[in-house]
């Protein structure tokens, strides 16, 4: 029973990891940028929600209405002002620039909010659960978080498959120069991709901040889990990212069932094992010609 419970909770946690990782996967898929500031941007969104809660009394879910568009706008501006320049500087430049950005944001948060741990309050909903059988209960909140992860991934998938802009992103991902010859303005497209990525990471940040405590340095672990989910699933594949999140979540759940201290370690070990056995990930995106 303990094992079943660990797997179920792990799957739900995996949905949340996929939610965090979706934007990372999108940005890598379209621009080949590994955004090292992704984790701390999720934390930034959580602090945004915290402010709205403290000053206006808004529930974290309500705050999404403001936090998501705000983060998307930030993403658009960030791409136009900073990351476009970094992209022109070769492969290493975006890594360095996003790493620097992560440090700057983390320290700004530290300066503004201090190092105290915070938590977003979703009220009684946070602890409510459905009792399935004796000893196996599913919390409403983890279920909602996982559902949000699946919805975001499915939504992004539909967006990429069916819309004009989505197709342009896939074309640019396949061959950036050829895409320009089709009349695609790749700078505008990149800005839209980053805006969407930061919109999704805002949702992820609010869920993460409601699930457990956070402080300005929480971005690093968030980034690592998201990165592991993306790599386990296969770089550039959205459904792979969902699978990667679930694999990571279950590994952590099972590890923690043995000993609470082993949870994170078990996740890292599975990540290393996947890298060793299937370096392209479990569901690598279609090989481009």
């Amino acid at each position: 029973m303990n094992t079943v419970n660990a797997v179920v909770q792990g799957v739900l946690l995996g949905g949340l990891y996929a939610l965090v990782a979706a934007g990372l996967s999108l940005v890598f898929g379209v621009m080949r940028i590994v955004n090292l500031a992704h984790g701390v941007l999720a934390v930034l969104a959580a602090y945004g929600s915290l402010l709205l809660g403290e000053h206006l009394g808004w529930n974290p879910f309500l705050s999404l209405l403001v936090v998501v568009p705000a983060m998307a706008a930030l993403g658009y501006a960030l791409q136009r002002a900073l990351l476009d320049r970094a992209l022109r500087g070769g492969e290493l430049a975006p890594l360095l620039v996003t790493f620097g950005l992560a440090i700057v944001i983390q320290n700004l948060l530290l300066e503004t909010f201090s190092a105290d741990t915070q938590r977003l309050d979703v009220g009684a909903f946070g602890g409510a659960s459905i009792e399935l059988t004796d000893g196996l209960a599913i919390g409403w909140f983890p279920l909602l978080a996982a559902a949000a992860g699946v919805l975001v991934i499915a939504g992004l998938g539909q967006f990429l498959a069916r819309t004009r802009t989505g197709r342009a992103m896939r074309a640019t991902s396949d061959d950036q120069e050829a895409a320009q010859l089709m009349g695609i303005d790749n700078r505008r497209l990149y800005a839209v991709a980053t805006a969407i990525a930061l919109g999704t990471v805002a949702i992820a940040g609010v869920f993460l901040g409601s699930r457990s405590t956070f402080d300005p340095s929480a971005g690093a672990t968030t980034l690592i889990f998201a990165f592991e989910a993306v790599v386990i699933g296969g770089l550039g594949s959205l459904w792979g990212t969902l699978l990667g999140g679930v694999v990571l979540g279950v590994a952590q759940g099972l590890g923690a069932a043995i000993d609470p201290a082993y949870g994170v370690l078990a996740g890292h070990l599975v990540f290393l094992a996947v890298l060793a056995v299937r370096p392209r990930g479990l569901l690598p995106s279609a090989v481009t010609a």
């Binding site: 004009r164 197709r167 342009a168 896939r170 074309a171 991902s173 396949d174 061959d175 120069e177 050829a178 895409a179 010859l181 089709m182 009349g183 695609i184 303005d185 995106s285 279609a286 090989v287 481009t288 010609a289």
Partner: peptide, 20 residues
């Protein structure tokens, strides 16, 4: 230099949407 991950129609659709 086809967009290998997309169908033939989608390739042309990208060109029609943006270039056209």
């Amino acid at each position: 230099r086809p967009f290998g991950g997309m169908t033939v129609l989608e390739n042309a659709l990208v060109a029609a949407s943006f270039g056209g």
